[in-house]
Simulated assay, not measured.
Amino acid sequence: MWISDIERIHHRRLHFLVVGLDIEWRPNFTRNIQNPVATLQLCVGRRCLIFQLLYAPYIPQSLVNFLRNPNYTFTGVGIKSDVGKLVEDYNVVVARIAELTTMAANAYGVRKFKYAGLKTLTEEVLGKEVLKPKRITMSRWDNQWLTRPQVAYACIDAFLSFEIGRVLISGNYY
């Protein structure tokens, strides 16, 4: 339903749709062991989808097709490793990605942005401050029922990935 709504609302710009993307998984403090992706977060405008991959009996074909659409640009920080983890854990492919740190470094001519996180990019590109409490970032993303703060955090990360991407792409820094 989320995908249908997005494609209906944004039908005039589907050939250059920007989608914020992020993932979360259970933190692991043991070397050489990586937990699978637990949630996939997507955002277009003010509409976010938090999809719990870990508990899905299958990944809907509509979601697979959405992620594989070469007309859509998925934006995020560390997006290459995120989509690599989606392929590795679920064999889910994302067709077209844009790394926000590279875009911001090119847009502003500031080399250090290549190593920035979402919090820094939010401050620099959007002029807004965002809180990223460790108790949420390092929480149990593999729980079947996410807490309200987890859902809010997941939406905010996906929204900021979208909004920063939208700003940078509209300035033709892509």
Rank of each mutant, 00 (worst) to 15 (best):
Y90F: 14
K85N: 12
L121N: 09
V87S: 12
S81V: 04
N69L: 08
E163C: 01
I164S: 02
G127T: 03
Q150M: 12
K119N: 09
I164G: 01
K114G: 03
I156E: 05
T122D: 11
T137E: 14
G76N: 05
K128M: 11
K132C: 03
Y115L: 11
N71R: 11
V125G: 05
I79N: 00
F113I: 05
M103H: 06
E124G: 02
Y72V: 13
K132T: 02
T102K: 00
K119A: 13
A158F: 11
T102F: 00
A154I: 09
V83I: 13
K114T: 03
L121Y: 07
A95K: 14
T120C: 10
N69P: 15
S139F: 04
F66E: 08
K85R: 12
Q150L: 14
A104E: 00
V110T: 07
A95Q: 13
R68P: 03
K80A: 13
V83C: 06
T102R: 01
K80N: 11
P133W: 05
E99R: 13
N106G: 04
G117T: 07
Y115S: 14
R111T: 10
L146T: 01
G78V: 00
L67T: 04
N143G: 07
A105T: 02
F74H: 04
T147S: 15
T122V: 09
K112S: 11
